[in-house]
Design a protein around this nucleic acid. Structure first.
Lengths: 195, 195
DNA sequence: GTCTATAGGCCGATAGAC
DNA sequence: GTCTATCGGCCTATAGAC
């Protein structure tokens, strides 16, 4: 059906430029710094074009989110299908749960129009992770009573997000100790190179 | 020295009203919804009074933070000096790490003027918790190699904050399982009523 | 300490020409 | 699809009267 995807064929590059400028602004200055005027300036366009292509700012934010989510899911699936998926997920989450994720969560909490979609996305990602972790834990000889997969998935998300947030804040109390602690537990779970 | 604290004696109630209105707005709609006009409206005042009493909005935010931090620290010390301080800290954190804390962290990440103070406050609280948890862990027969106190303090902060954030978002994947998991671990650490 | 008045600026969004 | 023009609104902050 790729051939049928012709809507806005000429505007593709403009749309891309707007999406890219918006994502950059969110990363650098947070969602509150995003305005149609600032986005347009950064993309070398007029602000009215932002509204022409995306309507409201909420729809623009959602378009940026959907684009970022695609990449995120593709990389997540790659990490989860590799050997030692638990360690891979920990590594992936520490790299992928960046300030952008934090901005979207903060945005979603205060904007009805984007909240539902981001909340569902959050739970959906967690479910995918839990399904894969469940098999990995069984293989590692860990029962669901000792460590449910959904608990492990929550732990990984909570720790990586908090590390990112506090680092952005300039706070680092306990970070290195936590990293050492987690690495050690992961080694116990999945061991070193396959024996 | 209480008698010497006379500066702004007549303005005390106005200042309090402004602080209270600001905190309310932050809780209900987030820091981005706070403006001198909206704060003043809620307090039944003119917006210029906000600037007269606090100068810039950043100083207003810091004043609200310092007031909230006082309460927070008082309650934290109470929790940490009770029997079974680990369970108490978990309970306290789940109650005290509210949306207000999340708003201040988000605010601090994007406002230079408040970042340093909130980052230092965050690390200072973590250090207090670690010191007390260290003794509690030793008493429970847990060595620092098995579970360093600063790691436990980080875990408690990360989990309670993530629970609060995701709940505000409307996401709940793994929440109940996580709560059950943590409660069980806490029972193992500190047991039931003192034997 | 509180008021009125105001400067100077950024915002979302739309209308209509081309 | 992109432009110019513009409406109506909210913002921080200051000056000066009382």
């Amino acid at each position: 059906m790729r051939a049928g995807r012709r809507i806005g064929r000429d505007s593709a590059s403009t749309r891309q430029a707007i999406l890219e400028a918006t994502e950059q602004l969110m990363r650098e200055e947070g969602y509150a710094a995003v305005s149609s005027r600032r986005v347009a300036d950064r993309a070398g366009l007029k602000s009215q074009l932002v509204h022409y292509h995306f309507g409201t700012m909420d729809e623009l934010f959602l378009a940026v989110y959907r684009r970022a989510e695609e990449d995120y899911l593709a990389q997540l699936l790659q990490a989860l299908t590799a050997p030692q998926p638990i360690s891979r997920l920990w590594k992936f989450s520490r790299e992928a749960d960046t300030g952008l994720v934090a901005e979207f969560i903060a945005l979603a909490i205060h904007r009805k129009a984007v909240r539902d979609e981001i909340a569902r996305s959050n739970d959906r990602v967690r479910a995918i992770q839990s399904a894969v972790l469940s098999k990995a834990l069984t293989q590692a000889g860990i029962s669901a009573e000792d460590l449910p997969a959904e608990v492990l998935a929550f732990l990984i998300a909570a720790l990586s997000r908090t590390l990112v947030t506090e680092t952005a804040l300039g706070a680092s109390a306990g970070h290195s100790a936590l990293l050492a602690f987690v690495e050690r537990r992961l080694l116990e779970l999945e061991g070193g190179p396959r024996s």
